[in-house]
Amino acid sequence: QGFSPSLRWQQQQVSNFSEVRQSVAKHRQHWRAQFLDDNVVMPKPDDEDGWKRFCLGENVNLDISPSEGDTVSPGLDYVKMGFPPFLSIISKLSQSTISAVLEYLISWFEERDFVPQLGRWLYALLACLEKPLLPEAHSLIRQLARRCSAVRADLEDKDDERLSALNLMICIVARYFEQNDLADKE
């Protein structure tokens, strides 16, 4: 009790997520045309390690703690912290690349803990994933929801900062993408 979300909250998230997807689709062409800064070098679609570093950052990907000797603030060093899913970045990805990056990140998550930058990228990629989904995509997002459920089951504190993000992921997969057997029930 206290860990799983109410039906009302879930319905609100589905509604909000639907609006976000509509907005992304509406403005995709605009953001796709924007130039990126020179430091934003996106990996090739089949570069799995490159995408993990790009999205999650070298620190998390390599389990490196920020050292006191860093001259650049970790919060501003996207190479170390991971690039956020800016619209100008994610709008440039093809559907096949979106699916591939989802697979890379979910694969990473199978062996690692849930971190904030992972949540942001998963949300952004799911927001850009066009429906109807391919069977492979259905399988992938179901894997994500199951992994989120497993991590959530190990949480000991309702105030754990991961809880709300895990609930959000499960809700989006189960309610928005209609994998109803995975939905949290009241």
């Binding site: 979300p5 909250w9 998230q13 992304v24 403005h27 100008s88 949300y123 709300s164």
Partner: peptide, 30 residues
């Protein structure tokens, strides 16, 4: 009006990030 809010959406490169953060916070508030 609606036109201004649409323009602000266009110019906000961080819209997806904000939407995610807002969703996460909403559960804590609930």
């Amino acid at each position: 009006g609606a036109g201004q809010s649409e323009d602000s959406d266009i110019w906000d490169d961080t819209a997806l990030i904000k939407a995610y953060d807002k969703a996460v916070v909403s559960f804590k508030n609930a």
